[in-house]
Design a protein around this nucleic acid. Structure first.
Ligand SMILES: [Zn+2]
Ligand SMILES: [Zn+2]
Ligand SMILES: [Zn+2]
Ligand SMILES: [Zn+2]
Lengths: 133, 133
DNA sequence: ATATTAATGTTATATTATTACACAGTGTTA
DNA sequence: TAACACTGTGTAATAATATAACATTAATAT
């Protein structure tokens, strides 16, 4: 198989699960994923969680921690820095990945009281989306 | 009664669980809390989760979403705005609440592409603490 | 080839959280 | 007073989320 540059070639299970998440309009939960890929031969939770772990690790998807759900990344810079930001509508649960150069720069340069810098972070904003206001 | 400055009188279960979290040096998980309060008559998970929900709601504790654990708030401004930030050591799992006027001001004023502002957010920074470096 | 690493398949189990229902206390209203 | 709404409690059962343990196979590197 042709392995181009730094591209991660997904395995069969990883590809099946990534495709499902990528084409979804909303974040998907692990057991919802499991249910939807059983016809493709993925039968057990662990198969799903292993693929999810790897996809998160390589930055193809992100976990929305407050919702225990997974969303595909459409922001190529995330694949380098594990620095993510999302907006979440508290009514319709719509989740959008925020890609703001200003925000990521601010957070990447943020130092706490001890002068500590953090390259990795996860930020979740909550509010009402346009529709729900 | 003045709503802005209303003191929440904790119920018995809430007080027992808050005291445990408050005196803990690390975030506590729900079932660890349950185990530790059984001698005080709290026998079921639901009793713990109900108290936790209320304590989160009134800002006495926060949930560390990436760890499914709860920590007492020592930053009085959180009780007004549900805007929280933490640093988490990826080795020893030490969690510290960040209270930075600059950070909270920046995030409270942050607008996404649609001009939307969010008063509520949760930010988790990851890295290595002083000891673990 | 062989050692090594990564991924898979399967079963069982652990951990985290909620539903459903009955009931008790408190304060307000009629 | 009685009726009501509201909040909290106690208990059992169950749902939802995630990992442990073990055997096996595929891909990669030396
Ligand atoms: Zn991303
Ligand atoms: Zn919405
Ligand atoms: Zn706080
Ligand atoms: Zn540490």
């Amino acid at each position: 198989m042709n392995k181009m540059h730094k591209e991660h070639t997904l395995t069969k299970n990883q590809q099946i699960i990534f495709d499902l998440i990528d084409k979804s309009s909303e974040p998907l939960k692990a057991y919802s994923i499991l249910y939807n890929v059983q016809k493709k031969g993925i039968k057990a939770p662990l198969q799903v969680y292993r693929a999810l772990d790897k996809l998160v690790e390589i930055g193809k998807i992100h976990k929305i921690e407050s919702r225990n759900a997974f969303i595909a990344c459409h922001n190529s810079s995330c694949q380098v820095a594990k620095a993510t930001a999302f907006s979440i509508c508290e009514i319709c649960e719509k989740v959008t990945e925020i890609s703001s150069a200003g925000l990521s720069k601010y957070l990447a340069n943020f130092k706490d009281k001890d002068g500590m810098k953090y390259s990795k972070y996860n930020l979740e904003f909550f509010g009402l989306c346009k529709k729900c206001r």
